[in-house]
Amino acid sequence: MPAAPLAHPGRVVLDARDIGRALTRISHEIIERNKGAGDLVLLGIPRRGVPLAQRIAARISQVEDVDVPVGSLDITMYRDDLRLKPARALLPTEIPSGGIDGKVVVLVDDVLFSGRTIRAALDALNDVGRPRAVQLAVLVDRGHRELPIRADFVGKNLPTSLSERVSVRLADLEDDGVDAVSIEPRPDATEVGE
């Protein structure tokens, strides 16, 4: 999803420092909830979940002095709207070499919205192995759930209208190298999810 042209940058709700602080807090909450980082595996949901997972892992490593395995989990083939659009390109799935059996998997995504992406991710996870527990960390929870799914760790609760779009830009993926979360009017009202 390309960012909106700069003519309408939208309203910035989190800047780079806000995002940094939110990720630091999430990292501490993950350690606290799990009483350490021993059995953790972080799996980012491409694209934007992956750099977020890497940043959280780096922060946890700083605090706990252990390396947290980080991977990515593509959910394309598990989407419930797969048949509604032309075949989509697949994104990388990389499961850390230690696997996920018996581990605590923290799924990481940028925006929690309908919950359908996370439902797909849980299905995908099921085919990879059997974690001891699955937790969910998101940078932004914008509400409007369509499934009984909630996040364990939330960077920012952001009340939104369905006519708005939450745009997350991460330095790792954007040309301009700037982190920002902004709210924009939605260009087409049919696009849901992501």
């Binding site: 593509d74 598990y78 390109a89 697949l90 990388p92 990389e94 499961i95 299905d123 085919d127 990879v128």
Partner: peptide, 20 residues
């Protein structure tokens, strides 16, 4: 080719199946 590259890793997984 890119899709095949992603699908090739499936052979290393315990459940070699996707629901697509």
């Amino acid at each position: 080719l890119e899709t095949a590259a992603e699908l090739r890793s499936l052979a290393d997984r315990p459940i070699k199946k996707l629901p697509a």
